[in-house]
Design a protein around this nucleic acid. Structure first.
Lengths: 118, 118
DNA sequence: TTGACATATTCCTATATAGGTATATAATTC
DNA sequence: GAATTATATACCTATATAGGAATATGTCAA
């Protein structure tokens, strides 16, 4: 089997840096294709193809305006990535260790006092 | 050009669901390869190969213990993903809209009062 | 040292790109 | 309607998989 298609989900679509760049630009406001071409210094067909992938996973939407296609961001499909990766934040963020300690202390305290008080 | 190698960065490594599964298991504690094989119901060579990819991007580390290789998680390479995707949270989270409104009000208030004070 | 166990590596195949180039499609203007 | 502009699509190539099967490597036990 080959790798999963880039259009499988946001994880795959966003693995490509060019596509993240496109989203980063669109995050500042909607854009017709040619603006993206100029801002990213990427060939027009490449931009169109990346946009197609992003469209298929729902990360962008299009509006027709004369002969232009105006693309806008839809971040919602990124939520699963956010949710997944957030669980790992504690593994690199030391503040979580501190928080864990506090919670641990509270728990122990509760176990000591808890039985007497309700 | 083909797609970027899976070992290019965490974005690419983690696009594969099996590798996310492996990390999810390791998040609960280190494991020798065979435990992963059993828990994921995946063939041993496949697991070893996925682990190799994860090793190359630094998402796991190995310790030799007799004839076993005990793998443990290192979440740090996930931080760039977290940082990137977090910027988009506001695009799907309505609470940010509410926050934006509050900030907008504060800003307007400041502009009204600001000139007299300070 | 022979065999059992744990893991990694090699070889195979089908498939899917990303970018380049050329071209098709569609809207607009003169 | 011919030329121009904006975008999408088709075709090509090099490359990299993910999984399956077989095998190599390394470790321990009897």
């Amino acid at each position: 089997m080959a790798r999963a298609a880039t259009t499988t989900d946001a994880f795959n679509a966003v693995a490509e840096p060019r596509r993240r760049q496109i989203l980063d630009v669109l995050a500042t406001g909607e854009r017709p294709v040619n603006d993206l071409v100029l801002e990213l210094e990427l060939a027009q067909p490449q931009v169109s193809k990346h946009l197609k992938v992003l469209r298929e996973v729902g990360l962008v939407e299009v509006r027709e305006e004369g002969r232009q296609r105006v693309y806008r961001l839809n971040g919602r499909p990124l939520q699963p990535i956010h949710d997944w990766v957030r669980e790992y934040e504690r593994t690199w963020n030391e503040r979580f260790d501190a928080l864990d300690e506090v919670l641990e202390e509270l728990k122990e305290k509760e176990e000591r006092d808890g039985n007497s008080g309700k």
